[in-house]
Amino acid sequence: MKLGINLGYWQRDPVDDTETVLAAERLGYDQVFTAEAYGSDAFTTLTWYGARTSRIGLGTAVTQMSARTPAATAMHALTLDGLSGGRLVLGLGASGPQVVEGWYGVPFARPLARTREYVRILRDVWRRAEPVTNDGPHYPLPLRRHSPDSGVTGLGKPLKSIAHPVRPDIPIYLGAEGPKNVALSTEIAQGWLPLFVDPSRIEPVFGESLRGRPEGFEIAATVTTIVSDDLPAALEVAKIPLAFYIGGMGARDTNFHLDLIGRLGYAEEAARVQELFLEGRRDEAVRAVPDGLADAISLLGPLGRIKERLALWRESPVTTLLIAGVKDEPTLRAIRDFVRD
C-alpha cells in the first residue's frame, strides 16, 4: 500500500505546509494532495509545494470541474506536470448543486455526462492528435452561435495546444461517492478518491461499482488521523468535519455526503446530524455524529491503536492511504513504519 498526505484546503487563514511536505518527501511518502471548495484553490498550493520538492508525487483531491472549463484545467495540469517533471495526478470532482450553482454560477445538471465529456476533452488536449473539438452539449468546442442575440460571434475555430505536455496521458482520479459515479471512475479514470470510507465495508457498499475496475486501478483514500492518548477527545475532533459535510455541504434534500453516510449504515443518525446543523445547533450536531462512524473512517488514538487499525486498511482494496491531519515528522515517520512494516 502506498502512502501520502492530504493537506486539504485552507479553513480560514493562509497555511504554508512546506515543512510537512518536505518531511513527507524525506520519509519516502509517495504523494501529497491538496484540495479546494470555495476558498483556497488546489493548483496554486500544489505548485508551491512542487517547487520546493523534487520527488514526491503531486495530486489534487479534488479540483472542482465547475471552477474551470476543461481546456483551462487541461492547461493547469499540463503546466504543473511539465514543471514538476511528470509528477501530477489530477483529481477531479463534480461537487454538488449548492456549491456549483451557488458559488460557481453554472448549472449542475447531468454530472455523470458532464464528467465523461470533461475528461474526454482533457485527454484530447494532452494528446495533441488534432485540434480539439467536442460536439457534446455541456462543453461544445468550438462554441457555435444558436441565435443572433446569443452573444457568440461564431468565429471560434478548433485549436491544438501550443505546449507539448511531458506526458500525453496525465493520470486522472475521480472524487466520487454515489454508486454510478464510482463505477464511472473505473471506466474513464485511472483511480478513485473516496472521501469517507470504512475499510471493512468497501465491498458491501462499493463492491458492485468497483467490479469492473481495470488492473492497476488506484483507490486513494483520505483518512483523518489524530494521534492522542485521549481517544474520546480524538473522536470529538474527528466528528467536526463529519458534521459539517453531513449538515452543511449540501442542501436539505440533496446532499451526497448524507446519502453516503446512510449507505455506510447510519442513515437515521445522519439525518439527525443534518437537522441539528441546519437549525444552527452545530455543537449538538457534532455530538450527534456516532462514535462508531467517526472511528471507522479515521485513524484515532494512541500510536499503538493506530498500528492495530491499519491492518483493516491493508486488508481492504485501498491502494494508497492519504493521511490527513498529521503535520509533525515523528508521527509521519511512525505511520510510515507501521504501513511498511
Rank of each mutant, 00 (worst) to 15 (best):
D283A: 13
E269T: 00
Y266A: 01
Y266V: 06
G265H: 07
R282E: 05
H257I: 12
F256L: 13
G280L: 10
V286M: 08
A285V: 00
F256K: 03
R263E: 07
E268Q: 12
Q274P: 00
E268S: 14
A271D: 04
A285G: 01
H257R: 10
E279T: 14
G280H: 13
L276F: 10
A267N: 12
V273G: 01
E269D: 14
L260A: 10
N255V: 08
F277R: 07
F256N: 05
Q274T: 10
L278D: 00
R287C: 13
E269V: 05
R287K: 15
I261C: 06
E268G: 11
L276D: 03
V273D: 07
F256V: 15
E268M: 09
L264V: 10
Q274D: 07
E284D: 03
G262E: 03
E284H: 00
R272C: 14
L258Q: 07
R287Q: 15
E279Y: 12
Q274I: 00
N255G: 07
L264Q: 13
E284G: 01
L278Y: 10
V273E: 04
H257F: 15
A270W: 04
L264E: 03
V286C: 09
A271K: 06
A270S: 04
N255L: 03
H257D: 14
L264I: 01
A285P: 00
H257T: 14
L278I: 11
E275A: 15
A270L: 04
R281I: 01
A267W: 12
Y266C: 03
R272L: 13
V286S: 00
E275Q: 15
V286R: 02
V286W: 03
E284W: 09
D283C: 09
R263G: 09
A285H: 05
L264K: 02
R281G: 05
L278M: 15
D259L: 09
V286L: 11
G262F: 01
E269N: 02
A271E: 07
R287W: 14
E284R: 08
H257S: 14
E268W: 10
H257W: 14
L264P: 11
F277G: 00
A267P: 08
F277A: 13
E275K: 14
F256A: 06
N255I: 03
A270N: 06
R272T: 14
D259S: 11
G265C: 04
L276G: 05
I261Q: 04
D283N: 02
V273K: 08
R281F: 11
R281Y: 11
H257Q: 13
G280N: 09
R282G: 00
L278R: 12
